[in-house]
Each structure stands twice: as C-alpha cells, then as structure tokens.
C-alpha cells in the first residue's frame, strides 16, 4: 500500500513553528548590539549537522583565525548567550532540544543560521527526518552560507551579526543586446576535435586542471606557422618542466595525431 504524498504531508514545518516575539524587538536588538559590540557571547546549537560546520567554528576560535580577538567567545550555556548559532538542517529529534535552547537564551537574542544546512536545509532540504533549516523553527537574523563556511567567512558573518559590517549583497542583471553572441572558443579548430581534446584532458587531469591544460594546448595548436605538426607537438611537450603536465600534453598530442591519421 503506497501512501501518496499530499501538500499537508510535505510541509515546510509544522504548526509548532510559533515563537513569541516582543513588539519592539527591533529596538531591543539594536540596543543589545550597542552593548555587546566588543564582547559577544555565542552559544552553538547543533540541530543535526554533519560536524563540518562545528569543526570550522572550532577552527575559527583557535589561534590561526582567533575570533576571540574581536571579543567573540563561545560559551557553555544558552543562558549566557547573546548570539545563538544554529547549524544543521534541524532533524526531527533535535527540534525540541533546539527550541529549549532558544527559549533558554535571554531576550533579545541574535540568531545566526550557519552553513548550507542551517540556511536552507542544504542537500537535506526535503528529507523526511529534517525540517529544512533554522528559519523553519526560529526567526533568523543573519545567514552564514557555505558547506561548510570557511573560518574567514565565519569571522565575517559574526561581524555582520554584530553590526560591524553590512551583509554583502550584489545583484547584476545582464540583458542580451541586439546581435550579442557568445564568441565560439577556438573557432579554427574543428569542434569535434576540440571536444575530444577537452574530454581527454578531463580524464587525465580532472575538470579544473584538465581545463587549464586543454586551453594551453588549444592556444598552441592555433598558432600559425609552417613547422610540421609532430615537430611542434614534440617541442611543446619538451618545453614543459613538470613531468606530469608533460605526460598529459603528450597524451593530448596523441589525440590530435590519432584524429588526423
């Protein structure tokens, strides 16, 4: 017997998502921020994260990044906290513990949603055992995205939460002009051959480095000249210092000579 899914089954969050907010919460938060500017206490609430976020928070508060130099301190109890940091996609089992932690923190409190899962549920956004992000259970003030956010992003996010920096948002819209076309890369090389070279480069060195190496190779192929192809290829490979890159270039050369033969 299959249970068919209905709108009420696949809901963002249940009727429990009610948090009482004082009427002048904005003013209260503003005055809190004024008070805690160089001394903010943060309590971490793990709502079912995978630990990557927790570990990066750890990295942020230890010597190399050292968020404590900005007065940001991780505390042991929500009762001491000015800022609550929620990580994880909010699993069913963590809903009540997370709510209790939220209620235990004194008002007004700043809520930061940390990591892709906290921000939106991330890769787990629609699973049966999660509620899909911090803002499904409590109101959120600042989002720090990333999977996981780097320590630098974490420190930046704290600065945003404390009102030291603004949230960096930039929108750009490009409208296609009349006759505007994306130029074709390497038009003088047959399309099939180019794809063949790029795929081989990806198999040899992956997307990132393979892409770079294929690009260098194609630029070389396009250069005009009367030197025979095999000589040019041999010279190009011999000029390469790194033996591994030379191996990949030689393999791309074989692809070209194989296609011509």
């Amino acid at each position: 017997m299959t249970r068919h899914i209905t709108e009420t089954d696949v809901r963002a969050a249940g009727p429990f998502a009610k948090v009482d907010m004082p009427a002048d919460i904005a003013r209260m938060k503003a005055s809190l921020l004024k008070d805690i500017r160089r001394s903010a206490y943060v309590y971490r609430v793990d709502c079912g994260g995978c630990n990557a976020c927790e570990i990066e928070i750890f990295a942020s508060i230890t010597p190399v990044f050292d968020a404590e130099r900005f007065g940001i301190k991780v505390v042991a109890s929500p009762r001491h906290a000015d800022i609550l940091l929620f990580t994880g996609a909010v699993t069913r089992a963590m809903r009540m513990p997370a709510m209790r932690a939220y209620e235990a923190a004194p008002d007004p409190k700043i809520v930061v949603s940390y990591g892709a899962c906290g921000v939106s549920g991330g890769i787990f956004h629609d699973l049966y055992c999660t509620w899909g992000g911090t803002d499904k259970i409590v109101p959120v003030d600042v989002y720090i995205p990333g999977c996981p956010p780097t320590p630098a992003a974490t420190v930046y996010g704290f600065a945003v939460a404390l009102g030291l920096l603004g949230q960096k948002l930039k929108a750009e819209t490009h409208v296609q002009a009349d006759g505007e076309r994306v130029p074709l890369a390497h038009p003088s090389i047959p399309y099939d051959l180019r794809v063949h070279i790029e795929r081989e480069a990806r198999r040899m060195a992956g997307y990132r480095q393979g892409g770079d190496i294929a690009e260098r190779f194609l630029v070389m192929l396009e250069q005009p000249g009367i030197v025979p192809l095999t000589d040019r290829l041999a010279k190009f490979v011999a000029a390469e210092q790194d033996p591994r890159t030379a191996e990949i270039l030689a393999r791309l050369g074989e692809v070209v000579t194989g296609a011509i033969a």
């Binding site: 299959t2 249970r3 696949v10 049966y128």
Partner: peptide, 21 residues
C-alpha cells in the same frame, strides 16, 4: 518504516507524535 519501498515518499513528514523524549 521509511526504507520500505512502498511505505512513503522520501519527503513525507508525519506530524510529530509528541514533544517529549
């Protein structure tokens, strides 16, 4: 039972049966 093939859609979020552990 979530992993039975015919039990439920992976997105099914049943009403919590209670607020206590």
């Amino acid at each position: 039972h979530p992993l039975r093939k015919d039990a439920m859609d992976y997105r099914l979020r049943p009403e919590p049966t209670g607020d206590d552990e």
